[in-house]
Write a protein that binds this DNA or RNA. Structure first.
Lengths: 229, 229
DNA sequence: GAGAATCTTGACGAAATCCTGATATGGGGC
DNA sequence: GCCCCATATCAGGATTTCGTCAAGATTCTC
């Protein structure tokens, strides 16, 4: 996690450095608004801690300018405790407001809240798997063969998705049945075979000689990553 | 904007009612945790104000249970001012924490912050979406088919808009019901089907062979970006 | 308070999906 | 070649899921 701290009092900066464990936190510090804005732009932090009483530009102005091009979470730390100061900062785009003196625990908890939220806003990866002519878009729940969409029933999709998520590894019948049908169906191998037949019919060019899902006789099935023979 | 207030002191509830202008705020009140949870599920509010000292369940427990199925913003209002109380609530899923007595201005400012943020969390706002002969103007809340405006009821529009904002992806019945009707209605699939029928009747040229919204049997619905078959 | 619009609920036929049994295939061991 | 086992395929019928219609209930509007 990367922090930018914009704060002119060295004591507070020291306090923050001490509060945030260095193995988790990379901290960049600025003593005035101008340097602070530059740091935010350069370092692309996950969160910004901003003092209002800065020597050059007022903290509110720093916030205003930052909000023109960034929506990184900002927590304001200020000695000003009047209601109108809080309202101005919060309406000016701050995500939270802490009045000095504040406690270490509350600060870190509020930092966690802000980080938790910004993580939720930005979904991590786009999970999509592609091998040979087969493409599986897990997010959209869609499967393509050579660019053509293939429609799968709920069970077919679940089976294929589970195999693909464990691509390269052998998945036993029991594992598949327990995962897709539920633990009570571990012995319904016949049902599984029928569904596998339907899946291959739909996505294998030659269902009799499968390229994507190999049957491991006596054990289970394996999703092939590189096109095997 | 819809508020749910979970607070046993009548004085505070009165204060909140007075603080939030009725023309902008629809307020639902509960005096204990049990009713509060039910209200959140039923009314599908934009924000929840939660007291920690409730007569039946502890506020922290209410928060914990709510977070199992909802990520609506929650602002905790509490007489407990100790650091450990704040940390527990914030780490328990609260979005903000205000110690009583709090000022009217700070409360409303923090509410605005939470609302601003949850709006931003919502899928990227595309002012208008167009595919085939269908055009959806999200800002004006208007829908056109081949240039002709289609009148949709509030629920119909919400369903269509949610699907369209996640165009291409499968939306499960539960997701759709939780989002449009509220978490308490996750199992009213039948109602959803009837509304879907009405929507298709209005905007599909051939309602029996839909071009814009495909049903994914056993899973949910999908808004089609390119015109399917 | 009447009328319209909207929403929910129930009933029933249609469609899709799923399971089961019967039968075919294919490879290894003898 | 022949048998045996695991697997694959096919076909039917059961079950689940969907769509539609229509009748009440509720809310909104005038």
């Amino acid at each position: 996690m990367r922090y930018v701290v914009i704060e002119d009092e060295a004591a507070i900066r020291r306090f923050l450095r001490a509060s945030l464990p260095p193995e988790e936190a990379e901290i960049f510090e600025a003593e005035n608004g101008k340097d602070g804005l530059r740091l935010v732009a350069q370092k692309n932090p996950d969160i910004v801690l901003l003092d209002l009483g800065l020597p050059d530009i007022d903290g509110l102005e720093v916030l205003r300018r930052m909000r023109e091009w960034s929506d990184k979470p900002v927590i304001v730390l200020s000695a000003r405790g009047r209601e109108q100061d809080k309202v101005a900062a919060l309406d000016g785009g701050a995500d939270d407001y802490l009045t000095k003196p504040f406690s270490f625990g509350e600060l870190t908890a509020r930092v966690r809240v802000a980080l938790r939220r910004s993580l939720r806003t930005a979904p991590p990866t786009v999970p999509t798997l592609e091998t040979g002519g087969l493409k599986i878009d897990f997010e959209a729940r869609q499967v393509f063969v050579n660019g053509q969409e293939i429609r799968l029933t709920p069970l077919e999709y679940k089976v294929l998705a589970f195999l693909a998520r464990h691509a390269g590894k052998v998945i036993t019948h029991k594992q598949l049945l327990a995962e897709v049908w539920g633990p009570a169906y571990e012995d319904s191998t016949h049902t599984l075979r029928v569904h596998m037949g339907a899946i291959r019919q739909k996505l294998e060019p030659e269902p009799a000689r499968p390229r994507y899902i190999r049957t491991e006789t006596g054990v289970g099935y394996r999703f092939l990553l590189e096109e095997g023979v």
